[in-house]
Amino acid sequence: MLELIIQNAINALQWGSFYALIALGYTLVYGVLTLINFAHGDVFMVGAYIAFFVATFFLVSLGVPGWVVLALCVPLTMILTSLVGVTLERIAYRPLRNKGAHRLYVVITALMCGLILQHANLAIFGASRKAFPPLIQEHVYNVGGVSFTNLKVAVIVTAFLVFLILHWIVTRTRVGMAMRAISYDKFAVPLMGIPLDQIIVITFVLGSGFAGLAGLLFAMSYPVLEPYMGALIGWKAFIAAVVGGIGDIRGAFLGGFLLGAIEILVVAFFPSTLRDLIAFTVLLVILTFKPTGFFGVAKTTKI
């Protein structure tokens, strides 16, 4: 019984890690811009594809050994994916923001950017699924009836590391201080000599970079890539971020793991087709009774 619990806990942690990593990107951008970046799930998908091309390029064309490829893949994927995110910000969101357009129009634009990323991918690379090459030897460890692989542990450790790094950046550095300032008052911040656009670009770099990392880890854990893989995970991660309280890094992290745990528990005890149904129902109930999520702060409305 105890083994079963620990086994499911490890699975939940690993599955939740992906949600948490993506939710962090949502929550960062939302915290700074109060913009739901609906293209984020597709940025994650693009990250997985970039990882695929980088990995196959080094592994097949150059014949570099697997662990070197992995060491190259992590920074390259993160950099290239953050470029995608920054490009989206530059060409789609910033012009609208400079015009002072309503927030909703930016959200629609984000949604459309996501659709374009998906279908451009589908048009360019075709509908056939890509198989991600194995980079490192997967070891299965078995401790007292609980089995886990080195990859699973790596995913969980990475998620926690990313959380710690982001938490440190937001609470301890000058950039993080500027981010919090922007989310507090967007109009007073430029008057204090804080470069608004630069901070926003840094936010997008951080969010998209970690989405790319999540894409790489996801591709390594479940080595089948397809253009729509980002959509569902992205929506779910977004819901996780909201349940945690969007705009708060701890909330995104907690929400991601909560969603992962719910899904793994449902699959463990019910038929797996019920997974989405129960997971979303639980989230709906949580949001009905705690509308701002776990860490969200209710805003007072003035007339």
């Binding site: 087709t273 709906l284 009905t288 999520g293």
Partner: peptide
């Protein structure tokens, strides 16, 4: 029912979740 207390982005999530719940 959830819209009594929630607004804006949070309500958007509820509608997405409702869509998924119905389909599922």
């Amino acid at each position: 029912f959830p819209s009594y207390k929630t607004r804006g982005d949070y309500l958007a999530i509820i509608t997405i979740a409702a869509n998924y719940i119905i389909i599922s």
